[in-house]
């Protein structure tokens, strides 16, 4: 208990003294940082769509009328735009996620390879999303 309270006290005073720099336009993130923050943003976007995706899943399996309803909800221009954003989110989360798993295994951990793989994950997500858009806009 004694140690815990001492730990909390230190933690609090550290928090108070810690400098905060959040001038977003002046933070120059390295490419590996972009792969990481985009991994977070895409993850949050994907989680936010879970309830609606489940709703559409249940609707599409409820019967022929429900299937047609779900299909028409997915065919509007707004829905197609949203699907493109979600396709990018899924692909970026997938590619950057595979990259993180490789880094966990110690593969490509040196700076040059880490930068190259960050570039590869970011551009592959955009490219494959656009290819998918080309196949089924």
């Amino acid at each position: 208990m004694r140690r815990l309270s001492a730990f909390l006290r230190d933690e609090r005073s550290m928090n108070k003294n810690r400098p905060v720099f959040l001038d977003l336009w002046r933070i120059r993130l390295p490419i590996t940082g972009w792969a990481s923050i985009l991994h977070r943003i895409s993850g949050v976007l994907l989680v936010l769509t879970i309830p609606y995706a489940v709703y559409l899943f249940g609707l599409s399996l409820s019967g022929p009328a429900g299937f047609a309803d779900a299909a028409s909800r997915l065919s509007s221009g707004f829905a197609r735009g949203l699907l493109l954003v979600l396709a990018w989110s899924f692909l970026h989360h997938l590619f950057a996620g595979i990259r993180f798993l490789m880094l966990d295994l110690g593969l490509g951990i040196d700076r040059t390879s880490a930068r190259k793989s960050a570039w590869a994950a970011i551009s592959a997500a955009v490219a494959v999303a656009l290819i998918g858009w080309g196949i089924r806009p």
Binding site: L61, G63, P64, F67, A87, F90, L101, R136
Partner: peptide
């Protein structure tokens, strides 16, 4: 992550390349 990557990739490819034509197929 490993399971989600595998199945969601399969699901996405299936829906993109061979989307179900009607309710019964789906």
């Amino acid at each position: 992550a490993v399971y989600l990557a595998g199945f969601s990739l399969y699901l996405a490819l299936h829906l993109l390349l061979a989307p179900p034509v009607d309710y019964l197929a789906w």
